[in-house]
Amino acid sequence: MKFNDLARKAAKGSGPLSYGGSVHPEDLIRFSLAYGAVGADEIERLCEQHGWHEDGLLEDGTRVVPLARWAAACVAYGRGGVASLQHLLTDRTLATVAIAVLEEVRTESCVTALLDYCMSTTAVSDEPDDPFWRALGALNALTSFDDGLAPPEDQQEKLRDLVIETFASATTSHQLTLCLCALRGAPIEGSLEWAEAQTVTAPDVLRAKVAAIKSLRRRLSGSYKPPSAEQKRQIRRQRALDV
């Protein structure tokens, strides 16, 4: 995206420009990643100029993208990096968008921030949109696939322990499934044995258990070789085509 493209997208659209024009959250994230602090200034300027909404539900019942929240997270990253996003995790109104940006930044420090967050908080609801479950889902997305990050062993140990503790108190199939999926990002001693020992009955949870065991066995085998950077790009492209 060229620098002026964001302003152009913000200035056109079928609805009021306060709805964001043709700007989507993904545009703000990409812009922040590309332009850093200068991009943050531009995002902040456009947010103020067009009056992007903080709340996704307006007084008349209209639902809009709360683009001002996305702008706040992207401005924070552009100016202060992952550390600033980590600070936003303490605000429940901004936590989910901060988590989404961390997932797109895709660095080892993002894994650290998400792990620290999950280990210092608890879910306040069973809804998948609860920040805790969103953060665990982001950890799954960042570390569980062959094209994902490979955090150091101490981080994998934290992830394994987090999964085991969370699984023990999980109350829904979605939560149990998410735990088993996230465990794939911790192919270390104890993970495979624990997964094999779990008794599950719900079909979707059973599928997640089988997939986790298969992934862990493969990654723990002596013949496993992590994909190269080019292979990771190919895997990512193929996944995008499959969606």
Rank of each mutant, 00 (worst) to 15 (best):
A113V: 06
S120G: 08
D130C: 00
F132P: 04
R92G: 04
Y117H: 11
A95S: 14
A113D: 07
A95Q: 12
E108P: 07
A98R: 13
D116K: 06
L115P: 11
F132G: 04
M119F: 00
E103C: 14
T96F: 07
V82G: 01
S109N: 15
L94V: 12
D91I: 14
D130H: 04
S120C: 02
V101A: 14
M119S: 01
T121P: 00
L85E: 05
L115E: 06
Q86I: 02
S109Y: 03
T121D: 02
A113P: 06
L115D: 04
E104A: 15
L89C: 15
S109F: 10
D130A: 02
M119W: 02
A123V: 13
C118D: 07
D129H: 03
A83Q: 04
S84D: 08
S125M: 08
L94P: 15
E103M: 12
T107K: 06
D91W: 15
C118N: 04
S109Q: 15
D129M: 07
C118Y: 01
L85H: 01
V101N: 07
A100D: 15
A100N: 11
T121K: 00
I99A: 14
T90I: 13
V97S: 02
L89A: 14
R106W: 03
L85V: 09
L89H: 07
D126Q: 11
V105L: 10
V111G: 09
D91P: 09
E108W: 01
V124I: 06
T96W: 02
Q86F: 07
T121Y: 01
T112L: 06
V82S: 07
C118Q: 05
V111T: 11
C118M: 01
V105T: 10
Q86M: 08
V111Y: 06
E103S: 10
L89K: 11
V105Q: 04
L114K: 06
A83D: 04
A123I: 09
L88G: 10
V97I: 05
V97E: 11
L102W: 05
A95W: 08
T93L: 14
V111C: 13
P128Q: 05
P131W: 04
T107P: 04
V124S: 07
T93K: 15
L102I: 03
I99Q: 13
E103G: 12
M119N: 00
F132S: 03
C118T: 03
E104V: 13
R106S: 03
T90S: 13
D126F: 14
Q86T: 12
A95H: 13
L85Q: 07
V111A: 03
E104Y: 12
A98D: 10
T96L: 08
V111Q: 09
P131N: 08
Y117D: 03
A83F: 01
L115G: 05
E103F: 08
A95N: 12
S125A: 06
L85I: 08
I99P: 10
Y117P: 11
V97H: 05
F132E: 00
T96Q: 07
L85C: 10
A123F: 15
A113N: 03
E103R: 14
P128L: 02
T112D: 04
E108D: 15
D130E: 02
D129S: 06
D129A: 07
A123P: 10
V124A: 06
M119A: 01
M119K: 02
Y117R: 06
A123G: 15
V101K: 11
P131C: 11
A113M: 04
V105D: 03
G81L: 05
A123N: 13
D116R: 00
T121I: 05
S120P: 08
R92N: 08
T90G: 13
E127A: 15
T107E: 12
